[in-house]
Amino acid sequence: MNPSYYFREFIRYLKTAKSAVFTSVIVIAIAVLLLGIYLTISINSVKLLKLIRDKVEIDAYLTDGLSQGDISRLISEIKTIGGVKNVTYISKEDAAKFFAEDFGEDILDVFDYNPLPASLKISLYDEYKTIDRIEKIKSEIQKLRGIDDIVYAHKNLEIIERNARSLVFLNLSLLVVIAFSSVFLAGNTIRLMIEAKKETINIMKLIGASKETIRTPFIMEGLFQGFTGSLLAVLILHLFLSYFYSTYTNTDFSFSVVDTKFIILLIVFGSLLGVIGSAFSIRKHLKFS
């Protein structure tokens, strides 16, 4: 079959069913947009949780009056504990500086002396940032001489651990629901469009058109609708997320927006939606006897 025939038929189908094509493009755009919004929220929520977890550190407060030698020994001992990545010494003076940065006031103006203890800031490897593992590390540090008290963001970790699983479950459930709804919505719109051309398909079959000859222009039409719809969705998503990017990005958290890979993924998804929707919808009309 001459390729120009397919192209002409494809253009004819587009021209004769303008409003149906428009509806189908919009439906696919909505489906892809829903998926795009979902993926963006999902990626950013996972990123946010990771950020909170990354910031988890142990602060070990030291008893007063330790010598430089005691502190060096403590640091070496803590570094040998499994899971410890790095140990930084925060002197009483450093602690006063941080206090001034955080609260805008000199500690010596509040009290007559500096009550802030010297401490060791202990960072951990990612896989050790769970309550169970931190508790074990904490108990080992506690045994060391010169340690007064140990604190870490127990509450934050508890929230993350409690919600991480349900977040993954919620994400997967939503993904399944959105993917199925998208396929159903787009497939149904395309099916209605092809139903409207049932008579044409039937006549084509009667005068000797092969399955491929009938199917190809419809597949091209599906690809066009899918591609146009997803392109539209990507544009809307980009505008929408640009707003979020400027509103929610700060020094701590960079809101991830549509990148090239993401755009390609959405356009491939939309195009496949159109092609598969058309292929499935036309299948039942292609029986020859």
Partner: peptide, 18 residues
């Protein structure tokens, strides 16, 4: 089947024009 149908001319009561 399409190959066979291309060798037959079929005329219908309701014309079946596109």
């Amino acid at each position: 089947i399409p190959v066979l149908r291309r060798k037959i001319g079929f005329v219908f009561q309701d014309y079946k024009l596109l």
